[in-house]
Design a protein around this nucleic acid. Sequence first.
DNA 1: GCTTTTTCATACTAATTAGTATTTTTTATG
DNA 2: CATAAAAAATACTAATTAGTATGAAAAAGC
Lengths: 196, 196
Amino acid sequence: MSKAANTRLNILHKAFELIYTKGYQTTSIDEIIATTQVTKGAFYYHFKTKDEMGVAIIEEILKPTMQENFIKPTKTAQNPVEDFYNMISYLLLEDPFLQVKYGCPVGNLTQEMTPWNNKFSEALAELVDLWKTTIINSIENGKESGLIRKDVVGEQVAFFILSGYWGIRNFGKLQNDNSSYLVYLKELKSYLNGLK
Amino acid sequence: MSKAANTRLNILHKAFELIYTKGYQTTSIDEIIATTQVTKGAFYYHFKTKDEMGVAIIEEILKPTMQENFIKPTKTAQNPVEDFYNMISYLLLEDPFLQVKYGCPVGNLTQEMTPWNNKFSEALAELVDLWKTTIINSIENGKESGLIRKDVVGEQVAFFILSGYWGIRNFGKLQNDNSSYLVYLKELKSYLNGLK
DNA sequence: GCTTTTTCATACTAATTAGTATTTTTTATG
DNA sequence: CATAAAAAATACTAATTAGTATGAAAAAGC
């Protein structure tokens, strides 16, 4: 990787971490360049505006991460019900990057930037749609293989699961401990079993 | 109501509307006093800081509203399953103040202010706990009257319902139309029926 | 009516913000 | 090596921010 591409990625990564923990609006460019040890000239060489950087984070950091962690695994998936539970459980309890008190990066950005910034909205909507579609496909597969009831509606379940995930992430932020996660996961398991 | 108390409430109401639509951090005091037609002197007479005003909004605007709309109605509740559905459905589709594109005021504030502002966290946690407890009580009543299965765990269901609500509100913001609400509500009904 | 306290108005400050203008250094290319 | 282009460094600006200092008007108490 060229040195220039490296500084660019460095900015994106560090900025993402700051934004994840502090929020987008309250993370200043001065703060970003201070933690990246990059000057303002370099920053604005790579990004025309702060918002352009924000969208780049979504497309170049969040999207690939999601592809890798959520989309790819379902290709080799066997049992949708178990897979969904494991996916959510992993994200809530085990993912090494995500922290209870900071919530879900995608959820945070969605909450903060929509409906005021169209570029953000579009980039985030694309992400979420990708995830949603993956879940729907998984459910359809499950219906064909007989692991899921035929009358289950994939889109409904997808919205239900993802909404619950975003919501409980917000509860986690509020309470700053994962006890709510544990309670939630029990009910999620019960709900998912109802799809069989 | 005295004139002073009136200006105070006026500030709280207008500020709340601005914060609901724009977010807390991006709503400036200058903007608040401009829309309220109140001077900075008056503002800082009533509130020592912006954050103090923010907490006052939670306690003096959001809390009473929630009491009136969520807590009170359950006193005369008959069927928990139907009541939950109607409550969420009303909030999503019919409440005259709430708008799809602006999400849930409590959810928004939680997302934006936790875990960085303890005062906000505490005030919000109190609110949410109130709502949660109400749901749990309602479920216990339902279990006694035989409308809900005995093996249903109230706390789990409460978290599940509230999480879903917060989450789908975020979806609404993202898409800026209520189509996701409609899909979500169908699955919610299906889930709630499973509690019978 | 006079005084005190409450309530509000005006003008300011110091810090922070995103972004720019300009120059310098580094890298690529012939 | 020479030159051009890419990448980065420095110093600045104009606007916005929360909050303050100080004084004036309104209301309350006697």
